Computed example of a mutant assay.
Amino acid sequence: MTAGNAIRYLRGDATAPQGKGVKVIAHVCNDLGGWGKGFVLALSRRWPEPEQAFRRWHRERAGNDFGLGSVQVLQVEPHLWVANMVGQRGIRTGRSTGVPVRYEAIDTALAALGGQAAGLGASVHMPRIGCGLAGGRWELVEPLVTARLVDRGIPVTVYDRD
């Protein structure tokens, strides 16, 4: 799948992952329970379950593990799963300074995702997580993806929109 233990980069849509076998689509969510901008809209156009599960997970957070660094993996098709990873503190507003991305939370979530993907025998597919509305820089996220997934032998494909 990946040559020499490297991330594979493709032009295309991360909600339509390429390749055979079990696949997990991974993306970053905020810790406010908000779902309404960015990549999540493309997910919601295909499947209602990731948004419904995320909103329920946030609503019931007093009794679960919801928070920065947490990951929620749910099945949306027979060989396709979506991983909601909480890697963003709040959202950007007109007055906010700094960026919402939290690299340590993405790292923690990717480590957990690595175990789940390995258990499923799955490849992982994603946009450049944390680098859209979360304001992160790919040169800081890419090494986390490599360390937590690729170095564990999990094939990873990153999609860039045309």
Rank of each mutant, 00 (worst) to 15 (best):
R11Q: 14
P17K: 10
R137T: 12
R46I: 09
T146V: 09
W47S: 06
L133N: 03
S70L: 09
H58A: 04
A3D: 08
G63Y: 02
V71F: 00
V145W: 03
G94Q: 06
V141L: 15
Y103Q: 08
D162Y: 13
V24C: 05
V145L: 15
K23T: 02
G121F: 09
G21T: 03
I7V: 15
P100E: 07
H58Y: 07
G34A: 10
G63L: 11
W81M: 06
P100L: 12
M1V: 15
G12L: 00
I154F: 07
R102M: 12
K37P: 07
P127S: 14
Q75A: 05
D151V: 04
L68P: 01
D162P: 15
A6H: 03
V101F: 11
L43N: 10
T2D: 13
A53Y: 03
A53M: 06
V150G: 04
L149C: 06
V76W: 01
G21A: 14
G119P: 02
G98D: 11
R8M: 06
P78E: 13
N5L: 15
L10A: 15
Q88S: 15
G130L: 06
G153V: 08
E77L: 11
V101L: 14
P48C: 05
Q116F: 01
V28T: 03
F39L: 07
L68D: 07
G12A: 03
A147E: 14
K20I: 10
H27Q: 09
V145I: 15
A83M: 12
D65I: 01
E142G: 11
W47T: 12
V145P: 06
A147C: 12
V101S: 01
R148K: 07
V124C: 05
G98T: 05
L144R: 00
Q72A: 09
